[in-house]
Amino acid sequence: MMLPISDFPLWAAIAVAIFLLLGAILTLIGTIGFLRLPSFYERLHAPTLGTSWGVGGTMVASIIFFTVGTERFIIHEILIGIFVTVTTPITFMLLARAALHRDRAEGDQQVPHKIEVSGTRDPN
């Protein structure tokens, strides 16, 4: 049973609002960055705002809201956070390595070369 909204304590409402706004704003900024940053490798960084504290803030807000609202301890949102954090690097590296492979194949000078077995060439 949910508490009626008028009985929701003020401190909890403020905490929920702060975390929800924090998560939403960080996700929005990350999405804007994803659209506007100039190069592919820079764009890679932007969505991680959404997958780190974007999801974190929304998760904490949800935990507070439902724990206070139903007067039961509800923390299963934390599973979303764990799975998002653990699975992001997989798609991320897949995209990054595909981009590296293409840029190297096209002979892009800005991208560091694959290091040969014998030498340790500086990437710059």
């Binding site: 990350g30 490798y41 820079e42 890679l44 960084h45 932007a46 991680t48 705002l49 997958t51 780190s52 954090t85 992001t88 690097p89 991320f92 590296m93 990054a96 390595r97 590296l100 560091p112 290091i115 077995v117 340790t120 990437p123």
Partner: peptide
């Protein structure tokens, strides 16, 4: 990867190096 601003691009097991991209 979870830290915005640093990105893990490629691990080279022969040279034991990781190529990172930093914003």
């Amino acid at each position: 990867t979870s830290t915005p601003g640093s990105a893990w691009l490629e691990y080279d097991s022969r040279n034991k190096t990781v190529l990172l991209h930093v914003l």
